[in-house]
Design a protein around this nucleic acid. Sequence first.
DNA 1: GCGAGACTACTCGGATATATTTTGTCCGAGTTCTCAGGG
DNA 2: CCCTGAGAACTCGGACAAAATATATCCGAGTAGTCTCGC
Lengths: 158, 158
Amino acid sequence: MRMGEGVEWGLHCCLALAWLDDLAPIPTRRLAEVFDLPAEYLKKQLQPLVKAGILASEPGARGGYRLNRDPSAVTLMDVVSAIEGGLAPFACMEVRQRGAGASAASSTEFRSPCGITMAMRRAELAWRRELASQTLADLLASTSPAAEQRVRRFLAST
Amino acid sequence: MRMGEGVEWGLHCCLALAWLDDLAPIPTRRLAEVFDLPAEYLKKQLQPLVKAGILASEPGARGGYRLNRDPSAVTLMDVVSAIEGGLAPFACMEVRQRGAGASAASSTEFRSPCGITMAMRRAELAWRRELASQTLADLLASTSPAAEQRVRRFLAST
DNA sequence: GCGAGACTACTCGGATATATTTTGTCCGAGTTCTCAGGG
DNA sequence: CCCTGAGAACTCGGACAAAATATATCCGAGTAGTCTCGC
């Protein structure tokens, strides 16, 4: 159960884009340089963020990506679920309903989800809640001004 | 970020084994029949639980698996981390330390982890805490007695 | 009848294949800039 | 000099390929029961 690296990349890119007041789009090549990442693959990772409406893209020369919403309107959960696909980490297959003797069970027995599923859901919910409680704006406030200056200056140049 | 199906299987098997007061080991073939799972692959999924000391195994004929600890001493986190490998879902690669201008940063800037990492860790911690707060004994108490009876009777037969 | 020993049946554990997902690369459609040529 | 238009440069988006991981299978080591043979 490892989370794809695209999540980390996406979050850093969103943050970097949020630092720019400028609305001019930034191409992936430039973003990739900031973090020393493979440009082509980074582009692929950012695409779902566009689909989710978090980023906006401009094609053609002078094109690139820019933040499409106010940083306070983008939660970490938004970014994570956009890139990871939004599926539940724990997929309950309802194994209890299969196999030996399950057919003999009363019809009401499976009305409510099994205890295991509920426990996993509870844990997952705690995770989601935590991610949803933080926005890009919160991250902006808590990051080092020095780092922000460096990235801004780099992206602004040229 | 999908969790392997082995986790669900492992939990259900632990629960089934916990229902048996009897200490006689249950072979995987029998467990697989209960939930209609592929026996060989289920066996492979249970092996890490043995390594973690949650289950104990007996080789040879009349062999099988049995619970190695009191149900109240096994948390869901124990089972999940045994099967999934216990790695952090979010692996921070510290991308901020690489790439453009990072070398120009002050030596103290990277002393504390970046905000993104901290936020992800917080979320992960909430998840782990939730899983660690529930034991097999809790699940035993919250499951349908009818299901327990069916599984017990099936595993006890023969 | 009784015991000893070989044999069979069954189990776990780990090594070996296959499938699926993740990671990485490439090419086409579209937009902007550049620059040469004509007015 | 200024305008026009063709070409070059650059970008995103999605199709294609390689690598890594999860899923599934197989074989060997070991144990308990069983059956036969000898006493």
